[in-house]
Write a protein that binds this DNA or RNA. Structure first.
Length: 294
DNA sequence: CCCCAGGCAGTTA
DNA sequence: TAACTGCCTGGG
């Protein structure tokens, strides 16, 4: 993928970028630490760094970052080496439903997120809604994450380490609005502290083995495991079936109720190595247009 | 007031 | 292994 990148002082611009719409990327449900600013840009935190993204015409500007970090961190994080036109063509071949979903979320990119933060974030996501998930994670970061300075008039904090979370009491975790998931967070944090490299090493496993390991962390079931596989373990064939994807696929493909496992099997056969991308376009399309919502 | 939200763990049969 | 049930909590 050729990119026309221009590095300036603490600012990076990519000219005439394809398949990159901040709104789609940050509001398609994959991430919880990106927020819209009043000027329409988005500020996010990853790798204990604060970065701001704004689309200006056909160009995209990354602020608060310079060449070194951009090359070492953000190029991969924003998946800039992947050809999304190719992916979209493949999954929407002979599929009118997917053509619509892809047109709707045309600027989606799957962020390559950090395993530890993703693990905890998606444990928090279970039986929860997005504003509450974001609020919980924010409270954890404000209370126990590294202070990263002020940006856009707001104090910013990194995501707290496994060591720190494992040492919190259940009460302290519950004070971050995590509810009954507090014990899952504490247990999982302790497991990660016990075997610090185990989580990162899961990337090297095949998807089934990787999933089995993830299910070993408390609070991780089939759906959460697939989110983790897709968002930070580079298993792009993963296909999380949540309530929205279940609804939209029943509504648009099956026209009747179907068990999640059957939906997953169907998606795996239909979309193969790109199943996760298909899921993300469908999820965003379904949520934003409330498709299948009774 | 009830219902639901990007499910999971624990218990039964 | 499938079916059930309880669960923090805030908004509709």
């Amino acid at each position: 993928m050729y990119l026309d990148v221009d590095y300036k002082d603490n600012k990076v611009m990519i000219k005439d970028i394809k398949n990159f719409e901040p709104q789609h990327i940050f509001e398609c449900g994959q991430c919880f630490r990106w927020d819209k600013e009043e000027d329409g840009s988005f500020t996010g935190i990853a790798y204990n760094k604060v970065v701001n993204v704004k689309k200006i015409g056909a160009d995209v500007v990354f602020r608060n970052t310079a060449k070194e970090d951009f090359i070492n961190i953000w190029t991969k994080y924003f998946d800039l080496g992947t050809d999304y036109s190719h992916i979209k063509d493949r999954i929407s071949q002979n599929d009118k439903v997917m053509q619509q979903a892809v047109a709707f979320g045309r600027g989606i990119r799957i962020l390559k997120q950090e395993p530890w933060e993703t693990l905890i974030s998606f444990i928090i996501s279970s039986n929860n809604n997005i504003p509450r998930i974001k609020r919980s994670i924010e409270l954890l970061a404000e209370g126990y994450g590294e202070y990263l300075g002020e940006f856009y008039g707001k104090k910013r904090y990194g995501f707290p380490s496994a060591e720190i979370l494992s040492n919190l009491s259940i009460e302290e975790l519950k004070a971050c609005n995590t509810g009954y998931r507090a014990s899952y967070i504490k247990n999982t944090a302790s497991m990660v502290v016990e075997a610090p490299t185990a989580l990162e090493e899961l990337k090297g496993l095949e998807i089934e083995a990787c999933q089995q390991k993830l299910l070993g962390y408390q609070g991780v079931g089939p759906k959460v495991a697939h989110c983790i596989l897709f968002f930070c373990m580079e298993k792009m064939e993963a296909f999380p079936v949540d309530i929205w994807v279940k609804r939209v696929m029943e509504h648009l493909y099956f026209h009747k109720e179907i068990p999640p496992k059957v939906i997953q099997q169907f998606a795996s056969e239909k979309f193969g190595e790109y199943a996760g991308f298909a899921q993300q376009y469908l999820f965003y399309y379904a949520r934003e247009s409330a498709i299948g919502k009774k």
